[in-house]
């Protein structure tokens, strides 16, 4: 064997390994945001059997609220208080603002149609989605904006982090993943360990029976929207730390969240998390190893395939029909 050839082969192999690990890191970052959006879809579906198409737009509003808070404190380059505190305030404001928006959407767009034929709330959800997106466009214009995260703390968010050989996991990616995982753990504890969580599960299982057992279903539904919308709000802020902010961004994000929820098993909280990470993985791997141009085609083909082969998703359970 020629020694030079062996060294070159080893170098190529290391580059491929580096690229693969970086792909996994990228997919976990993207998947974390998708999981946060998918959770809202899944929880609302679980409780109301309704697809909340406006959920992506709530995510977009969260992103804008984050931008508003950032601007209020002087912007990314010259904040009037510590930039880390600004980031925390952006997240909290987005969660609070989106929770209020989610409750308003439930109250005015979904609740009046709760007992209407199934098509009515679906159309109402679509209409609400367009209403929110175009209201934001009228209010703030159509231009893309950014948090200008690259100028925050002298670029520290992007340039510092964990570096291991050629692999670099930036601080902003670590923040996105850690915050998303913490949010999911909190949600999991809320749903599985609290009285309200038990009420949510009961309502999801059988709304009428839960009502007869004394569960305040209206309160449970409102709480579900608060939770789902708050997660979408913080998801919007986390997403926009690495990309831009614009009024129509909710459509594709919502579609991705919906796809993740369906793949994971719509109605299932762990399914939504799994679906989010799987979608992030499929998207990133497709773009890296197959084609960047064919990525969306591939993703939505998977959605169709799931609908045909396993409509209940990976962790969803097929419902038993009473006859």
């Amino acid at each position: 064997m020629v020694p030079g050839c062996s060294a070159a082969r080893d170098h190529t192999f290391l580059l491929l390994v580096d690229q693969f690990i970086q792909t996994i890191v990228d997919s976990v970052t993207l998947g974390s945001v998708y999981a946060l959006i998918a959770l809202g879809y899944s929880m609302v579906y679980g409780i109301l059997k309704l697809l909340p198409f406006a959920h992506g737009d709530v995510f977009m509003v969260g992103s804008f609220i984050g931008l508003g808070v950032l601007k209020a404190f002087g912007g990314a380059a010259n904040p009037t208080i510590s930039i880390w505190l600004v980031l925390v305030l952006m997240a909290l404001a987005a969660m609070a603002g989106c929770a209020v928006l989610g409750v308003a959407v439930e109250r005015f767009a979904y609740r009046p149609l709760r007992n209407a034929p199934r098509i009515a709330p679906l159309i109402s959800a679509l209409g609400t989605s367009f209403f929110i997106a175009y209201s934001m466009q009228l209010l703030f214009g159509a231009n893309h904006r950014t948090y200008d995260t690259f100028t925050m703390a002298g670029g520290k968010l992007f340039l510092s982090g964990i570096t291991w050989g050629p692999l670099h996991v930036s601080l902003v990616r670590i923040i996105v993943v850690v915050v998303a995982v913490v949010m999911m753990v909190v949600l999991w504890l809320l749903v599985s360990r609290t009285r309200m969580g038990k009420a949510m599960r009961a309502t999801s299982f059988d709304r009428e029976a839960a009502m007869m057992m004394g569960v305040d279903v209206d309160k449970v539904i409102v709480f579900t929207f608060v939770l789902g919308s708050a997660l979408a709000g913080i998801g919007g802020v986390l997403f926009s730390l690495r990309t831009d902010v614009y009024s129509q961004m909710g459509f594709l994000a919502g579609l991705s969240g919906f796809t993740a929820a369906v793949i994971g098993g719509i109605g299932s909280v762990p399914g939504a998390m799994l679906g989010g990470y799987l979608l992030g993985l499929v998207e990133t791997v497709t773009q890296t190893y197959i084609s960047t141009g064919w990525s969306n085609l591939f993703i939505f083909s998977i959605l169709v395939a799931f609908m045909l082969i396993r409509p209940s998703g990976i962790l969803g359970k097929a419902e038993i029909k009473k006859v």
């Binding site: 059997k49 199934r118 719509i266 409509p311």
Partner: peptide, 8 residues
Amino acid sequence: KKSVVTLG
């Protein structure tokens, strides 16, 4: 569940 998602 399937019918609502399909409807969407």
